[in-house]
Design a protein around this nucleic acid. Structure first.
Length: 895
RNA sequence: GGGCGAUUAGCUCAGUUGGUAGAGCACUUGCUCGACAAGCAAGGGGUCACUGGUUCAAAUCCAGUAUCGCCCACCA
């Protein structure tokens, strides 16, 4: 046992003073690494298995947001709790190279210097990005240390690390060899600004007000025209057909004949296809196979040619004839005008529809026909689906399972090639007609590597095992895979979570983790998403500076489960106030501990009072609550349980009840043996329970709890490695809880009477109590501990039934409490108060009576419920009766 | 077009198997009494969105309605 250091508490609580130092302290102790003694032992199973969690790797360009703070608070709370439970814990940190995002950032910087990536060339540009990464990348982890999180920094990974890159390329080759990666020319989502293909997940659909243009296409035989409706007239230049519904009688005669494409004069066939809905628009659809995914399918079904009319910047190309060189939106305007001039435009209707936007830069997506690499997903999805269905992986909150399954069951192939430079270059080599998939450059001359890189998510989906050294059979991999838990936002459930599960099964034969907890999405007070452009994202570092990292953690962790969090800075105050409260409580306890060594004290040597038994029982309950709620990811409930116990029970009541016994120390040598034992007991219990509170709270508020724990006598180097409290069976004591509840009710009643009677707050008052023998006995036994709480001058328990003549009165559990007034106050007011009280009781009484008159209730309700109501009836009637008599006595005094 | 979530005190939200509606903040009143004014004590404030149903009993279970939000979806 080490002595405490009470002087540490002489200054007021100031988070910015204590927090930064503590982090270095933990790091020096090696708190963040898996415990060496446990890591040296054979790997256990179940709750003895290592607890492993990986950070969702933030973008290398990222800086800390409140969203990160939320996730990190939750992850670290769990890790710290598990560590205290004695488990070997590993929290793996790392960053994502974030292909598009990072390339955008560096290109922007180049633009500011009037350069483009093409000026530097591929190698030069990559060098520039790496330099940027070394200089600015990873800022987020510097910021994160301020939050007090405990990842094992010695294992920090980056998705472009050599080993990790090898894993990515290995995966590509393996999937290719096994027929799950293929190259093909298909319509993909193309961002003309980023100049790359995107996956479906990287496209945001935005409901947009547009138009439906009705365009007349003349029939080749000159017998008239048919009208098509389109939202994208500019693509008509690439039309190679017109489709109608086979069931549409209007057009049956035309199927098989040709129309002449306006402006272009190309003859295009009219085909029948089920894709067409006769009820929409004109029932005739222009078919542009190279610029629309549906039309692509239709085109393939009917053997229509595919004419690309735009380039990769979204400008019209040579195939666009007179419109070549125009931006696609400019071309739209000009084409519509040209159609109108030539009399082809039938009409224009306003039309609301969904338009895809690049999730990175918000540019309108262009469906674009190009050569890309894809992953066949259906075979990978099968096990991920089964895992969730069979409960091998559990999602919290559970409703996300449906979302997860729906996506997997309707999964589409994944476009993984990106026309970028920053990323894992696709390990495919070409020489003339030859193609080789190989991680190494093939032997021989003339091989040219594929220009494209892989989607960033194609590397991050390997995170749970690639960070542990895979594909090499490392010790870490054997020991720490699978991970235990994934904590992340539901916004990346498809991007990342579901894909990790697929990769985990496919490459490791096992789910990457068994539990997935989805955090809230942090929004501003108006419910808007946090964003740089809105400027509504509070700076987490400023928040920590102002309220302390402890408070930020404590408050952020208490988010509604699986609901959006409307962030309001004001909320952060409460954690700081709580920390301050504990600071002062600890100061008090440590001051009153004296220099007595309590470490060897056994419970059997103590003289536990009712108050002690009560607080120990309440503590045991708190331990149970806090732990149970952590187990089920109910962080708000867990945190609230400590908060409420520490503040409203321990500080508000127990410490006050301990004060009179602490004061015995003033007697010095004059103390009797019994008094000495009482003093020791009060010291021991107040310290033990406080120690327990600090342990329970440590995962949530690591800094202040460590600081306070060090100030008290403690065992071990750091609270971070101390053991998690256990709820001792012998401490649960329902009888003591009931008895103290009664005493508390008496105290509250007296406080009430004083206020109602307008007695000066500081003035001690005599109090008389009439009640049953057990109640009076209780009061007498604990008199010295409760009289200060209500400023009672002298507590007289009235065994003979006598009572003061003129008194304010209240009834608590049948006991009558009298506060003598001696004509001090307005009797009318006291009578009115009693009347109000009685009225309230009467309403309750009516309710109970009604219930008990109901035969159905008596017959069908559970017996204990009926008994409870009966009990309540008796008590209400008794109380009411006593209040009435009190009123009577006041009247008789007046008369 | 499908799916999901929300609706409880002025605000943000709890309310785990149905059994007397809670917390924090805000508000009112009173407090330099030996830890704490970042505090203490006391208090006001709710037809639990609406309608129906199940039940002895519904904030809680079921059905529907309304409003808000999110996700998914190839009607050009």
């Amino acid at each position: 046992m080490r002595p405490g250091n009470p002087e540490a508490l002489s200054l007021p609580y100031d988070p910015s003073r204590i927090e930064p130092e503590r982090y270095a302290f933990w790091e020096q102790l090696g708190v963040f690494q898996p415990r060496a003694d446990l890591a040296a032992a054979p790997r256990g199973t179940g709750s003895k298995a290592p607890f492993v969690i990986a950070i969702p790797p933030p973008n290398v360009t990222g800086s800390l947001t409140m969203g990160h703070v939320l996730g990190e608070s939750i992850r670290d709370t769990i890790v710290r709790w598990q560590r205290m439970e004695g488990r070997e814990t590993l929290y793996v940190p790392g960053m994502d190279h974030a292909g598009i995002a990072t390339q955008n950032v560096v290109e922007k910087k180049l633009r500011a210097e009037k350069q483009s990536r093409h000026d530097l060339g591929r190698d030069g540009f990559l060098k520039a990005v790496w330099e940027w990464k070394e200089q600015y990348g990873g800022l987020i982890f510097q910021q994160e240390r301020r939050l007090g999180t405990t990842p094992d920094w010695t294992r920090e990974r980056f998705t472009l690390d050599e080993q990790y890159s090898h894993a990515v390329l290995h995966v590509f080759k393996k999937l290719y060899d096994e027929g799950l990666v293929y190259r093909g020319r298909y319509i993909v989502n193309w961002c003309p600004r980023c100049r790359t293909a995107l996956s479906d997940e990287e496209v945001d659909m935005v409901e947009t007000d547009g138009h439906l243009w009705h365009i007349k296409y003349p029939l080749k035989d000159g017998s008239g025209s048919l009208t098509v409706a389109t939202t994208r007239p500019e693509t008509m230049l690439g039309d190679t057909g017109v489709a109608v519904s086979p069931k549409d009688p209007r057009y049956t005669g035309l199927v098989g004949s040709f129309a002449v494409l306006p402006l272009v004069r190309r003859e295009i066939p009219i085909v029948a296809d089920d894709m067409v809905d006769p009820k929409f628009g004109t029932g005739a659809v222009k078919v542009t196979p190279a610029h629309d995914p549906n039309d692509f399918q239709t085109g393939r079904r009917h053997g229509l040619s595919e004419i690309v009319v735009m380039d990769e910047d979204g400008r019209m190309n040579d195939a666009a004839g007179d419109f070549r060189g125009l931006d696609r939106f400019e071309a739209r305007t000009r084409i519509v005008a040209a159609l109108q001039d030539a009399g082809y435009l039938d009409k224009v209707e306003p039309h609301r529809h969904n338009v895809g936007h690049c999730s990175r830069c918000n540019t309108v997506i262009e469906p674009y026909l190009s050569w890309q690499w894809f992953v066949k997903m259906a075979p990978l999805a099968a096990q991920a689906i089964e895992a969730a269905k069979k409960g091998k992986i559990k999602l919290f909150p559970g409703r996300w399972k449906k979302v997860y399954l729906h996506w997997l069951e309707n999964i589409r192939d994944w476009c993984i090639s990106r026309q970028l430079w920053w990323g894992h270059r696709i390990p495919v080599w070409y020489r003339g007609e030859e193609m080789i998939v190989s991680i190494e450059r093939p032997e021989g001359d003339g091989w040219v590597q594929d220009e494209d890189v892989l989607d960033t998510w194609f590397s991050s989906w390997l995170w749970p095992f690639a960070t542990l050294g895979w594909p090499n059979p490392t010790n870490d991999l054997a020991r720490y895979y699978p991970n235990s838990l994934m904590v992340t936002g539901s916004d990346i459930i498809f991007f990342w979570v579901a894909r990790m599960v697929m990769a985990g099964y496919y490459f490791m034969g096992e789910a990457p983790f068994s539990h997935i907890y989805f955090t809230s999405i942090v929004r501003d007070a108006q419910g808007r998403k946090m964003s740089k452009s809105l400027g509504n994202s509070p700076d987490p570092l400023a928040m920590m500076e102002k309220y302390g990292a402890d408070s930020v953690r404590f408050c952020m962790v208490q988010t509604p489960t699986g609901q959006d969090l409307l962030f309001d800075e004001k909320r952060l105050e409460s954690g700081k106030f709580f920390a301050n409260k504990l600071w002062n409580a600890t100061k008090l306890v440590s001051m009153r501990m004296g220099d007595e060594d309590l470490s060897g004290v056994k419970e059997s040597q103590l003289r536990l009072t009712l108050a002690d038994r009560w607080i120990l029982s309440r503590f045991a309950n708190a331990v149970k609550d806090v732990t149970r709620n952590l187990k089920t990811y109910r962080f708000a409930e867990s945190a609230q349980a400590v908060y409420h116990f520490a503040w409203n029970e321990y500080c508000d009541w127990y410490l006050e009840m301990a004060k009179p016994r602490w004061a015995l120390a003033d007697l010095g040598d004059a103390m009797t043996d019994e008094q000495r034992a009482d003093l020791r007991t009060a010291r021991w219990v107040s310290w033990k329970v406080l120690d327990g509170i600090l342990r329970l709270l440590h995962p949530f508020m690591p800094f202040v709890t460590e600081e306070l724990w060090q100030a008290l006598p403690h065992d071990g180097d750091t609270l971070a490695m101390a053991s998690w409290p256990k709820a001792k069976k012998s401490w649960f004591d329902a009888a003591s809880e009931r008895e103290v509840e009664f005493l508390q009710a008496v105290v509250v009643a007296v406080r009430n009477l004083r206020i109602e009677s307008k007695i000066a707050p500081g003035k001690p008052v005599p109090v008389f109590v009439r009640g049953d023998a057990a109640q009076l006995d209780l009061l007498e036994k604990l008199a010295s501990q409760i009289t200060p709480l209500a400023r009672i001058e002298k507590l007289t328990v009235s065994r003979d039934g006598s009572r003061p003549k003129v008194a304010a009165s209240a009834v608590v559990e049948g006991a009558e409490i009298f506060l003598p007034l001696d004509g001090l106050i307005d009797l009318d007011e006291e009578r009115a108060r009693l009347a109000r009280e009685a009225e309230k009781l009467l309403t309750d009484l009516e309710g109970v009576k009604k219930k008990l008159r109901n035969q159905d209730f008596l017959r069908k309700a559970k017996p204990e419920i009926v008994a409870k109501e009966n009990e309540r009836l008796v008590q209400l009637e008794e109380t009411l009766d006593k209040l009435k008599r009190a009123q009577q006595s006041l009247i008789s005094v007046k008369e």
